[in-house]
Design a protein around this nucleic acid. Structure first.
Length: 474
DNA sequence: TTTTGAGTTGTTCGA
DNA sequence: GTCGAACAACTCAAA
């Protein structure tokens, strides 16, 4: 292992001190480690001022800084362009090397290549590590040495590798005295970054992540049975913390493995999905530019009927489960996984809107937005992805509503204007006669939109669209 | 090389 | 209301 006097540890999507690959290696190889985080102008400039993610990250960074100060160090927080700021800071602090963890987002890959080039030009070393996922890049390949394009065999290989290789651990505490002694300094406020505070239900930072993790471990055995019901507390609610690395994915996998129950196994497979999509993006960076995984579907002539996208975004489709889900997204920055499928299917197969537009909307709204997973999920729903939903398999939004929100608890939570409706009518209010609507005080077109499309008719159009495109592959 | 089995999350139709 | 078949045929991954 290299031996340095002083190095930089660049935090990015790994905002924690627990089990941190790059930090662990930095501390082991250097007498002094300077922790730094950059609010990157190159990224922030492209975000709207009300983007609630910046508030969440800001809180996580403040929490990380406080944790470092408790150890006698601090965090250098810059509001700058990482491409130039990191090499400059390394020079100012006399750091001989910069340590960071991989980020496979193609924009981050390009940024890191630029930073690496600039550092090496000045004779400084760069050390980068796998940390965000369990297995990355080419670690899991088919027997033919190709990346997997089908999840089920990938999962099989992933589980085998996990069983044989085990999970690495990257402790930080034993070397904490090598964190640079830094006096607490101020960091830019959210307002100085140009962003407004958000109404966040999710507690930030490592302590917030830990609390959610402990809570989920009480429920993980029931995960398989409850995860599809948005009204239930069935899923982990850890996605945003995984996105920003306030939790170590290795700790999560270890906990699920140790638990060993059917529910824990089902959840472990979700972590494998995350690895799978990250690996797909690594091999297909063109997906980030909106290319379809199945190139034959790149030219699919999405009709994009005027007004449909906006109605979907604004929760005005007239399909209660879809609208409730979109309100959940708009109000909280989160959407239940089952509902991500329902709304994505509805936009692409019922409204015939290009999946890229839906993906873009999710990307701007989701607190847990992760390019690899979001793109993978949308392409799956749109039937353009790897082992996608077969195109003739189209969700029926009413049936999904009846199956997964039978008592309408979720719908009533986000669409209180429909609360007076009886359970049976909640999934398809247009089936109520006008007189009954009046009696209940929920009149379609006045209190809630009439359905924007007829599912059966649009299903036929979607089938025709895909049949033509699939036939054209010939 | 060829063969074989399988592919996250479904819906509709008709008996 | 319940059940099985049809929806199409292709690609992936392993044996």
């Amino acid at each position: 292992m290299a031996c340095y006097d002083a190095v930089l540890l660049w935090f990015r999507r790994d905002l924690r001190l627990d089990d941190h690959a790059a930090l662990h290696h930095a501390l082991r190889s250097s007498g002094r480690v300077y922790p730094v985080f950059v609010f990157d102008r190159d990224i922030l400039e492209r975000l709207p001022a009300q983007d609630r993610r910046v508030d969440f990250i800001h809180r996580c960074v403040a929490s990380l800084k406080a944790d470092l100060e408790a150890l006698g160090s601090s965090l250098v927080v810059l509001h700058d362009r990482a491409r130039t700021a990191i090499p400059r800071l390394a020079g100012e602090l006399g750091a001989q090397a910069v340590f960071f963890n991989h980020d496979e987002d193609p924009a981050a890959v390009a940024r890191d290549a630029a930073v690496t080039g600039a550092l090496q030009q000045r004779g400084r070393a760069v050390h980068d590590y796998k940390d965000v996922v369990i297995f990355e890049r080419d670690e899991i390949q088919t027997q033919a040495g190709r990346p997997y394009g089908v999840f089920t065999p990938y999962l099989d290989a992933w589980r085998k590798k996990l069983a044989s290789a085990g999970l690495a651990a990257y402790p930080v505490a034993p070397y904490a005295d090598r964190l640079a002694r830094l006096a607490p300094a101020s960091m830019p406020t959210l307002a100085e970054l140009g962003f407004a505070p958000a109404d966040l239900a999710l507690s930030a930072g490592e302590s917030g992540a830990r609390a959610l993790f402990d809570d989920f471990m009480q429920r993980i055995d029931r995960y398989r049975a409850t995860r599809d019901y948005p009204a239930l507390k069935g899923v982990s609610y850890l996605s945003a913390h995984l996105r920003f690395g306030t939790l170590s994915v290795r700790r999560l996998a270890a906990a699920a493995l140790a638990r060993g129950t059917s529910g824990a196994q089902a959840w472990l497979a979700e972590l494998a999905w995350r690895d799978f999509y990250h690996q797909v993006l690594w091999h297909r960076p063109d997906l980030a530019a909106g290319r379809a995984y199945q190139r034959a579907f790149d030219a699919l002539p999405w009709p994009n009927p005027p007004g449909y996208l906006q109605a979907w975004c604004e929760a005005r489709t007239g399909y209660p489960l879809v609208d409730a889900a979109m309100r959940q997204l708009n109000q909280t920055g989160y959407m239940h996984n089952r509902l991500r499928m329902v709304t994505a299917s509805f936009l692409t197969k019922d409204l015939l809107v290009d999946w890229r537009l839906g993906e873009k909307y999710f990307a701007a709204r989701l607190l847990d937005y992760d390019l690899a997973a979001n793109n993978g999920g949308w392409q799956w729903a749109a039937s353009t992805g790897c082992v996608a939903q077969p195109w003739f398999r189209i969700f029926n939004p009413v049936m999904q509503s009846q199956r997964f929100d039978p008592q309408g608890h979720f719908i009533r939570r986000y669409l209180p204007e429909l609360a007076p409706l009886p359970d049976a009518a909640l999934h398809a209010p247009w089936t109520l006669p006008y007189a009954r609507q009046q009696a209940l005080g929920v009149v379609l077109g006045r209190d809630y939109p009439a359905p924007i499309v007829d599912h059966a008719a649009m299903r036929q159009r979607a089938l025709a669209l895909f049949r033509a495109a699939a036939g054209g592959q010939g």
